[in-house]
Amino acid sequence: MAQIQVRDLVKTFKVARRKAGLFSALRGVFHRDYYTVRALDGISFDIGPGELVGYIGPNGAGKSTTIKVMSGILVPDSGSCRVMGLTPWQSRAQHVANLGVVFGQRTQLWWDVPVIDSFELLRDIYNVPHADYRRTLDDLNDCLSLGPLLEVPVRQLSLGQRIRCELAASLLHQPPVLFLDEPTIGLDAVSKLAVRQFIRHQNTFSGTTVILTTHDMDDIQALCSRVMLIANGSILFDGNVDKLKQSYVTEKRLKVEFLHPPHMTPLSDKVTIIENQGNRLELGFATGQLSVPQLVNQLAAMGEIKDIIVEEPPIEEVIAQVYEELGL
């Protein structure tokens, strides 16, 4: 049975319509116009134990609302959700004990005291036996190299250091399910890599089910075998990353470097020139319309080739294209 089972979730919000100006603000005290936003418009999915799922979509698509419903913070208008057999909003305390949650933009640590104090408090909040706590902390310490950070007040940590501590804090009670909401936002390259490596490690070795929302497609590329794409409250795609590319990638890139500037001859009209600079040429061509050998033959006639790279467009662009096609 699926560890997380979501069926036909619907959630609407009432939003007050406000107009600019003092007069409207005063009017708003007595009378308000509301309009409803359908944040979730009947979404369903199953997630099995140990899966690592990327949850993506443009801002305001309903990602956070889904996470909040699955965490028990919000009650949906209709539909069902069961996480390890429990309905989050009905048995909140029991349910959240199974859950680790990291919000990249918000902290769960106590701001003014050393990190280790927060950890010990979380140990007591979750009633983690001392022996288990010590073992888990040692493991997390190894993976995230927290050592010197533990004695530092949270407010003095850099963002990258803080996120490492947040990850550890969310796992001290060894939850089987982990929700990560934009964990890599604002991080430098090194910290991003460290965070990704840790997430993969946790998923592989502890079997933790991970749901990751992000805007960074490199996160998805590096971590997730499965990706769910949500927009306007509906899930538009649910499957593996390669399938996403197959369905939406219709163009490949070919970069070629000549020994000398090439003698340009007209290429097939299925090819677009993206960049033409000195010895280098970057081309885009529609897959299925033109094969790579055909194109290479044409290029070989233009001059002596030093190097050729064929690549798919970065996933960023694929997603941008998907959003564009859907008119988002």
Binding site: S71, I73, R92, Q94, V96, R106, Q108, Y126
Partner: peptide
């Protein structure tokens, strides 16, 4: 600030 959500995520009153 949304800090209350964090309290709801903990298994305590």
């Amino acid at each position: 600030r949304g800090d209350f959500d964090r309290l709801l995520l903990r298994p305590r009153s």
